[in-house]
């Protein structure tokens, strides 16, 4: 994934899109006050400088799907692992909630279900049947909307054609009004994400830790 910070407005459409797609449990004010709000994607915002010459940095942060993911080797039950497509995935029914993965994630993008999520009737009508509901005691995180990837792959398979560049859109990418988020195949040198990843503005978050993140940020042009 490539995120162009020169386009990003910090509007948080992606945050709500992610909730809508992935059946993320709702918080209550009481639980939120204890730091128990679950977001798979967040907008970090930082202030730089002093008024009146103050600048704001918005940065959407989600699971970076690291090639050397620090969360993976510490899981005692292999609930989080690298799938053959290079996604860092979470097997919910293996997770026993040790929290080791979240403690080891430098990007703090993992969310824990402290309780069974509740949706007052009839809010469950909105649930996406393609995404399982996670019970209490289970860790969860961004999957790059693996269900949307699979759907497009299946359609392409059925039609006997390869998946087209840009055809797969995780919910956050699909929603982004400024088209700041782009998703594609980094292994395909001709894909849009590969071209953008070679841009002079490209950086990766905390790359110095050796995590080899697969989310590329295009820094704001100055």
């Amino acid at each position: 994934m490539v995120i162009d910070l020169d386009r990003c407005t910090g509007c948080e459409a992606c945050v709500v899109a992610c909730h809508s797609e992935n059946n993320i449990g709702m918080s209550t004010p009481e639980e939120a006050a204890r730091g128990r709000v679950n977001h798979w994607i967040r907008i970090d915002r930082y202030y730089e400088g002093q008024f009146p010459d103050i600048k704001v940095k918005y940065r959407p942060v989600l699971c970076q799907h690291c090639d050397e993911a620090p969360c993976e080797p510490v899981c005692p039950v292999n609930a989080t692992y690298h799938n053959p497509e290079g996604l860092n995935v979470q097997v919910y029914n293996r997770c026993v909630g040790t929290f080791y993965c979240a403690n080891n994630c430098p990007y703090t993008v993992r969310s824990f279900n402290w309780f069974d999520p509740k949706w007052p009737e009839p809010m469950q009508l909105q649930h996406n049947p393609d995404v399982s509901i996670r019970p209490g005691g289970v860790m969860e995180k961004c999957t790059f909307c693996i269900q949307r990837i699979k759907r497009v792959e299946d359609q392409a398979d059925a039609a006997g054609r390869p998946v087209a560049d840009g055809e797969v859109q995780p919910a956050c990418v699909q929603s982004c009004p400024a088209e700041a988020m782009i998703f594609g195949d980094l292994n395909d040198p001709d894909s849009k994400v590969s071209r953008l990843a070679g841009d002079g503005r490209a950086t990766k978050l905390m790359e110095e830790l050796g995590t080899k993140p697969k989310v590329v940020y295009l820094e704001k042009a100055r």
Partner: peptide, 27 residues
């Protein structure tokens, strides 16, 4: 049941995109 709202790609205002409030319309 409505599972999700996305922008209508054929609509020239949203162009297939939607803001936070628009997507929460289903709620």
């Amino acid at each position: 049941a409505i599972k999700k709202l996305e922008g209508n790609p054929l609509d020239h205002v949203s162009g297939g995109r939607l803001c936070a409030r628009g997507q929460a319309g289903v709620q």
